[in-house]
Amino acid sequence: MFRTAQTFFGLLVVTFLLMPIVAILPLAFTSSVFLTYPIEEYSLRWFVELTTADAWRLSIMNSLIIGLGATLLSTVLGTLAALGLRTKALPFANLLRTMFLLPMVVPAVVLGVGMQMLFVNLGVASTYPGVIIAHAVLCVPFVIVSVSASLQGIDPSVEKAASSLGASPVKVFRRVTLPLALPGIISGAVFAFATSLDEVVITLFVAGPNQRTLARQMFSSIRENISPTVVAAALLLIIGTLCLGGLAALLRWRQERIALRAAP
């Protein structure tokens, strides 16, 4: 009885979370210019619009450029931070970790305002590097969390064994630590890319018209003219995010298997 109630309540929550998405997505395939049901005729015209209209095409390109740049930057920085936080004798390790994770909890608006002022002074406002740095700030915590988890799964004696077998610290890192942490690094990178992809608020503050990302373009187009292109773009984003999420889950699963293996 309780079991049934549990399942029912669970389904209710899932429905509540997914309904808005499910409700709007079919409209991506409407042939009408209005975002309304019922759909009288199905067509792919809005997807064509997405890939041909300059504003949309440019925004997709921007999202990819900024997303890849932010992913690269945040993965490198986040991995280094996670490695550093692992040092046994690090003073204030917990405080440092909290600081690194702060961008996850600080309201994006606050970050956005601050970054805009800073970036104007630095001369990187409304430039690609500026937006990439801004996104990377948001992405780094995800990388740190993911890489830290995979580093925690590494048995310290495995690294000790490597060094006793004649491996210098650099070799230990390249041959043992890095390969074992790789699944965590990759899944961190996936999270980072997904985070950059749907970031709007900070983009509004630091990006110029030339760095308009897909998410930002959707935001403005829904205010200017409610066209089904937005829904088509949303569908693309959801599919992309699902693929990335799937990839991350796969990697996490592999990582757990490796961690299991490492146990005696």
Partner: peptide, 20 residues
């Protein structure tokens, strides 16, 4: 001396084999 320059073979309790 750092461990990698001591030429000592260490066998750990949990074997510490490289899982990968």
């Amino acid at each position: 001396l750092p461990p990698h320059r001591r030429e000592m073979g260490v066998v750990f309790q949990n074997y510490a084999l490289f899982p990968h």
